[in-house]
């Protein structure tokens, strides 16, 4: 059936508004909106990293509530994954993705899985603590590779 044209009729015209393909200057202005929020991003991520540490501690120290704490780890890592790259922190996104993928279908983690989760959270702290924008240096890439390898190896152990 044909799509509803109601919104198109309401908003699309030949005189006022933005073209379907933005001009470079318009893109720059929109990007400036994101850049302006970089300080808030830093505060927000710091809060989420603290949340990850608390959740990790909860998982490590109690069997009761471990499921909820694992859910918090999944949820916080997903949020960090979605934010990092927007604010020029793709490495943060990569580490957060690694943590989220690793914990996705995990129940209560084994001691070695817990160690890997702790290392992944430490890596997120390192990226933010050192303000590592872009993809990082060779060392960070090697660390990411090593954590991903460990995650692959111990996901089901």
């Amino acid at each position: 059936m044909p799509p509803s044209q109601e919104l198109r009729r309401k908003a699309v015209n030949f005189k006022k508004g933005f073209k379907l393909k933005l001009e470079p200057e318009e893109i720059r202005k929109l990007e400036a909106v994101v850049e302006k929020a970089t300080d808030q991003f830093t505060v927000e991520v710091a809060e989420k990293l603290r949340g990850l540490r608390v959740a990790l501690n909860d998982v490590a120290n109690s069997q009761i509530g471990a499921d909820q704490a694992m859910q918090a780890i999944r949820s916080l890592s997903l949020e960090i994954k979605g934010m990092g790259g927007m604010f020029k922190y793709p490495l943060l996104t990569a580490f957060a993705k690694s943590l989220n993928d690793f914990t996705k279908d995990m129940g209560v983690p084994t001691p070695i899985q817990l160690d890997i989760i702790a290392a992944q959270i430490d890596a997120l702290y390192v990226v933010m603590g050192n303000r590592i924008q872009g993809s990082g240096s060779k060392i960070e890439m090697q660390l990411l590779g090593a954590l991903e390898e460990a995650a692959r190896k111990y996901r089901h152990h």
């Binding site: 908003a11 699309v12 015209n13 933005f18 379907l20």
Partner: peptide, 13 residues
Amino acid sequence: DMADHERIDFSKI
């Protein structure tokens, strides 16, 4: 050619 000149007025949405 016409499509190239279409604009979206976001104030209406």
